[in-house]
Protein backbone atom coordinates (compact mmCIF):
# COMPACT_ATOMS: atom_id res chain seq x y z
CA UNK A 1 0.00 0.00 0.00
CA UNK A 2 2.79 2.43 0.96
CA UNK A 3 4.63 1.74 -2.31
CA UNK A 4 1.54 2.47 -4.35
CA UNK A 5 1.03 5.82 -2.58
CA UNK A 6 4.74 6.65 -2.89
CA UNK A 7 4.64 5.98 -6.62
CA UNK A 8 1.69 8.36 -7.06
CA UNK A 9 3.39 11.11 -5.08
CA UNK A 10 6.70 10.75 -6.93
CA UNK A 11 4.84 11.04 -10.24
CA UNK A 12 2.77 14.05 -9.21
CA UNK A 13 4.87 16.26 -6.97
CA UNK A 14 7.89 18.08 -8.32
CA UNK A 15 10.49 16.29 -6.27
CA UNK A 16 13.99 15.13 -7.19
CA UNK A 17 13.52 11.76 -8.84
CA UNK A 18 16.61 10.25 -7.22
CA UNK A 19 15.51 10.80 -3.62
CA UNK A 20 12.60 8.60 -2.66
CA UNK A 21 9.91 10.18 -0.51
CA UNK A 22 10.15 8.66 2.98
CA UNK A 23 7.14 7.33 4.89
CA UNK A 24 7.18 10.23 7.35
CA UNK A 25 8.14 13.06 4.95
CA UNK A 26 5.55 15.82 4.93
CA UNK A 27 4.68 15.95 1.23
CA UNK A 28 3.13 19.38 1.57
CA UNK A 29 6.53 20.76 2.52
CA UNK A 30 8.41 19.10 -0.34
CA UNK A 31 7.23 21.45 -3.00
CA UNK A 32 4.25 23.46 -3.99
CA UNK A 33 1.06 21.44 -3.67
CA UNK A 34 -1.99 22.81 -5.46
CA UNK A 35 -5.67 22.44 -4.66
CA UNK A 36 -5.80 20.38 -7.83
CA UNK A 37 -3.25 17.96 -6.38
CA UNK A 38 -5.19 17.70 -3.12
CA UNK A 39 -8.32 16.63 -4.97
CA UNK A 40 -6.36 14.20 -7.16
CA UNK A 41 -4.65 12.68 -4.15
CA UNK A 42 -8.01 12.12 -2.45
CA UNK A 43 -9.47 10.59 -5.63
CA UNK A 44 -6.41 8.39 -6.02
CA UNK A 45 -6.63 7.08 -2.45
CA UNK A 46 -10.36 6.40 -2.74
CA UNK A 47 -10.14 4.68 -6.12
CA UNK A 48 -7.01 2.63 -5.41
CA UNK A 49 -8.17 1.26 -2.08
CA UNK A 50 -11.92 1.22 -2.76
CA UNK A 51 -12.86 3.45 0.16
CA UNK A 52 -14.86 6.65 0.60
CA UNK A 53 -13.31 9.09 3.03
CA UNK A 54 -15.81 10.81 5.34
CA UNK A 55 -15.98 14.61 5.41
CA UNK A 56 -14.45 14.66 8.90
CA UNK A 57 -11.33 12.85 7.72
CA UNK A 58 -10.65 15.09 4.73
CA UNK A 59 -7.97 16.98 6.62
CA UNK A 60 -4.42 17.94 5.77
CA UNK A 61 -3.06 15.93 8.70
CA UNK A 62 -4.44 12.68 7.26
CA UNK A 63 -2.74 13.22 3.90
CA UNK A 64 0.52 14.93 4.81
CA UNK A 65 2.67 11.79 5.01
CA UNK A 66 2.60 8.31 3.49
CA UNK A 67 2.27 6.93 7.04
CA UNK A 68 -0.79 9.06 7.73
CA UNK A 69 -2.47 8.00 4.48
CA UNK A 70 -1.73 4.31 5.15
CA UNK A 71 -3.26 4.69 8.61
CA UNK A 72 -6.34 6.38 7.17
CA UNK A 73 -6.84 3.65 4.57
CA UNK A 74 -6.36 1.02 7.29
CA UNK A 75 -9.09 2.57 9.38
CA UNK A 76 -11.65 2.38 6.58
CA UNK A 77 -10.66 -1.15 5.62
CA UNK A 78 -11.24 -2.40 9.15
CA UNK A 79 -14.76 -1.00 9.07
CA UNK A 80 -15.78 -2.80 5.90
Amino acid sequence: MREKIREFIMANVNVDEDTAVKDDDNIFRLGYVSSLFAMRLLNFIEASFAITVDDEDIALVNFSTIDAMAKLVGKYRTYS
Partner: peptide, 19 residues
Protein backbone atom coordinates in the same frame (compact mmCIF):
# COMPACT_ATOMS: atom_id res chain seq x y z
CA UNK B 1 -22.66 24.58 4.13
CA UNK B 2 -22.29 21.06 2.81
CA UNK B 3 -24.43 20.30 -0.24
CA UNK B 4 -24.49 17.07 -2.23
CA UNK B 5 -22.18 18.58 -4.84
CA UNK B 6 -19.61 20.78 -3.11
CA UNK B 7 -17.21 18.20 -1.75
CA UNK B 8 -14.39 19.85 -3.66
CA UNK B 9 -14.90 23.10 -1.76
CA UNK B 10 -14.73 21.17 1.50
CA UNK B 11 -11.43 19.68 0.32
CA UNK B 12 -10.18 23.16 -0.62
CA UNK B 13 -10.93 24.56 2.84
CA UNK B 14 -9.67 21.59 4.82
CA UNK B 15 -6.50 21.14 2.79
CA UNK B 16 -5.79 24.88 3.10
CA UNK B 17 -5.64 24.37 6.86
CA UNK B 18 -9.09 25.59 7.93
CA UNK B 19 -10.61 23.81 10.91
Amino acid sequence: RRTDRNRQMLVTYQFSGFR
